[in-house]
Each structure stands twice: as C-alpha cells, then as structure tokens.
Amino acid sequence: MPLRVGYVPEHFLTPLMQFHDADQGKTFVPVCCPSGTGQLIKALKEDQIDIAIALTDPLLAGLAKGETCYKLCGSYVSSSLNWAVSTGAKSPYNSIADLKGTPVGISRIGSGSQTMACVMALQQGWVGEDGKITPIEFKVCDDFKGLRDSVNDGSTSCFMWEWFTTKPYRDSGEVRFIGSVPTPWPSWMIASSTDAQRAPAPDVSDFLTKLTGYVKEFDSPEGRKQKDVDYLMKSHGYPEEDIRAWLETVKYVGDCAEIKGEVLINTLDVLEQTGFIQRPAGGFVVESLINEDVARLV
C-alpha cells in the first residue's frame, strides 16, 4: 500500500509534487491539507494520512504538549520561513506595534500561524512581569481565505502567513502587509504516524530516500536556473520575479532522513520563552521526539 502523505499546497512542496508526477502513486499518494500544520496533525491523529510534511514549530509544540500520534522522521527545508503580517485593506492598523491587545486570526489551534504570533509578541516585548507573553485573543479562521476575510470584516486585526503565498493578495489590494517575522529555526520537517502498520519503517525510509533525490534536484544550481522557475510558474501561477526572489531565500536539506538535535533544542527553547509550551521537570529529551527506526539524529 502506498503511504498517504499530507502536504500544504505551497511552493515549498514542489519537490514532493515533482516526485509524485514521476512516481504516479506507487510510493505515496498526496493528501492536500490547505489549512496548514494544524490540519496535518489532526489528519495524522484521525488516520487520514501516514506522513506529514509540516512546519517545524507546531510539530515540535504538539510533541512537547504530549501528542503521541506521530514522531519526527526527517527534515525538509533548512532555511527559515518569512511570515508576512497582514491586515485588512481598510483596517486602522499600520504597524505590528498597533496590534498589541487585538484579536489575531489563526488557521487552527496549534498551527504555525498561532506559534508565530507568540514569537511576534515575544519579539515585540508584549510580556508580563513574569516574563511570559501577555495572553493573546486568537480567532480560529480555518483556512487562508477565512483569514483574509477576517481582517477585512474586522473580526481580527491581523493574521500571519508565508510571504510569497500572501503576496498576490497584497498586490491585488485585498490585504496590506504591515511587517514580517522570519522563523528563528529551519522551517519544515517531516513526521510519521507512530502506528507501525500505517507507516512501516522500511516504507518511510524508502519514501525519504526517494524524496531526497527530488529535493537535491530542485535545490541544485541547474534546477534553480530555469527548471524550478518554469515548474512554479505553471503550477502556482506566480510571476517569474517572485519565484526568483523566493529561490534566493530558500534552502533545502541534503538528506531528508537526518534531524539536527540542535534545531530541536533551539526551537523548543524559543517556544518555551513564548509560553506556548512548558519544559518538563527533566528537560526535553530529543531522542523521544523522533522515530529512531527511520531518522538519524545528528
């Protein structure tokens, strides 16, 4: 049985889709989860997918909060992700500083849009006497369209989503950018179900090995020169200048089956500072977060 791989339909997932174009369902079938990592984690929990390629911070936050339906099995993108902070076309907000104490739109509880709002608050110094960020009023908007609608109907002040995915809506005047917050960690990782029948270690390892090949091809100088641009123009309809600008910022891992322990520790440290997670009495044990039958901790 081919693995069910959950993904978000964004340009970062191009190597996965090129893999699927060539593989035609032999190794895996893609399952689109447009609401983001919160939806991917829910799909893992509800036996809708076996593997998720998702954002680092919500995956780690879920594990730190005791989620047991998945473990990390690999890495995907090694560069940070630039989150645009967007508000409504006619909203009264003109800077991130204006957002303090206002309702923030998120796609799902536990999503990257929520964890990064906490990082933004920490960076802005919106903290109490205990050093933890002051509580944020979050409004769940389900998906990208719901988020855009929320800032224009006034039910939220802002939302955070990847810069280039949001840019066409900024260019059309639907939303306004009032800032950006890059992730202080490599942005994408891979998780697999802890149910060995759903995600057998040999099958997951085979998937990661093959995916690595497509990642390397996409990330190569030759691919970046024109092939990647042509594919993204056709698949996503982005302007060539935006694609080339994004390619200047993104870097992929050299081996999808490797996980850097320092990335896990550093990310968990920042998430703890935001108050989004709590450190257990004995500290974080990174080995417990990964599928050691598949992933190599380095």
Score class of each variant (00 low, 15 high):
G6I: 10
H11S: 08
F12C: 09
F12P: 02
F12I: 08
T14V: 10
T14Q: 10
F19D: 00
D21W: 08
A22R: 05
Q24T: 05
G25V: 07
F28A: 00
V31E: 06
T37E: 03
K42V: 06
A43Q: 11
D47E: 08
I49M: 09
D50A: 01
I53D: 00
I53R: 02
A54N: 08
L55S: 11
L59T: 11
A61F: 01
K65D: 11
G66S: 06
T68C: 06
K71V: 04
C73D: 01
C73V: 10
L81Y: 06
L81H: 04
N82K: 13
W83Y: 15
W83T: 02
V85G: 01
V85W: 02
A89F: 04
S91Q: 10
L99C: 06
G101E: 04
V104D: 00
V104H: 15
I106S: 12
I106F: 07
S111C: 15
G112S: 14
A117V: 05
C118L: 10
M120F: 05
A121Q: 12
G125K: 04
W126A: 06
V127W: 09
G128N: 08
G128F: 07
K132Q: 13
K132W: 01
I133S: 03
I133P: 00
T134Y: 01
T134I: 13
P135A: 11
G146S: 03
D149V: 09
D149S: 06
V151K: 03
N152W: 14
T156H: 06
F159H: 12
E162A: 08
F164W: 09
T165I: 11
T166A: 13
P168A: 03
D171K: 14
G173L: 10
E174K: 11
F177M: 13
I178E: 05
G179H: 06
P182F: 00
P182M: 01
W185V: 08
P186A: 02
S187Y: 04
S187C: 15
S187H: 14
S187Q: 09
S193C: 06
T194S: 11
T194P: 00
P202G: 10
D203K: 15
D206S: 13
T209Y: 07
K210E: 10
D219V: 07
E222L: 12
K225Y: 14
K225E: 15
K227A: 14
M233R: 14
K234E: 15
H236A: 12
H236I: 01
G237S: 14
L247M: 15
E248L: 10
D255A: 12
A257E: 02
E258L: 12
E262H: 14
N266V: 08
T267K: 07
L268R: 00
Q273D: 12
T274Y: 09
T274R: 06
F276M: 12
I277P: 00
Q278P: 00
A281R: 13
V286W: 07
I290A: 13
D293Y: 02
L297I: 12
